[in-house]
Amino acid sequence: MLTTLSRKMLLCLTGLFLAFFLLIHLLGNLQLFLPAEEARLQFNWYSQFLSGNTFIKLVSYILYLSIIVHVIDALLVTIKNKKATAPYKKDSRGRASKWYSRNMGVLGTLVLIFLVIHFQNFWYVYKFGTLPLDSAGKKDLYQLVVTTFQEWWYVIIYVLSMVALCYHLIHGLHSALRTLGVFHPKYVRWFKIIGGVYAVLICTGFALMPIYIYFTTN
């Protein structure tokens, strides 16, 4: 049986790994902002490279595992936390903390739902569906992206999900450093700022992609 601290450590390590993955994912996807034809070739090449590389494969298994562990661990933590408390008839405890700090479970669930949609949209189709080939003979994932983001409601789902992810990240990164044991007031302050900037940059970057595509290809 893990202690409460170890459970949080597991949540922290998987969370940090996922947060780091987001950066790599974002950097790769920046290719979508290239001029359309260039982007198509680049992006499709990149996609094929990722799915073919053994090292990347290994990393992707760790990634899947991290998501699963993060979710299950968060579920266990939440269940224990719920058991540890009793409801108040009048509850104003919220005045002492941020709403997103208190609702990591809700935000996390939103992000998880988004992940399912996101996987279904791209990952599943790329792996198991049939895609046309581009001029270089690679699977044309770029076309799939463009087609998807021509639906306005997909754009909205993606943007809103990035908002949820952003808040999840702001608290998550801050909390993770606490769990790691960063206690020096000076570094705590720096990390809080760095974490916030990181979360906002990543999520803005991702959110801009569907918007950019929606407006440039419509």
């Binding site: 409460t4 459970r7 949080k8 540890a84 405890r93 005045r95 208190r102 909390s175 606490r178």
Partner: peptide, 17 residues
Amino acid sequence: DAEAFGHCSNTEACEVE
């Protein structure tokens, strides 16, 4: 843990109160 306290999720409300 044995006393059935929950996990700290760093909401920081405790410091305020």
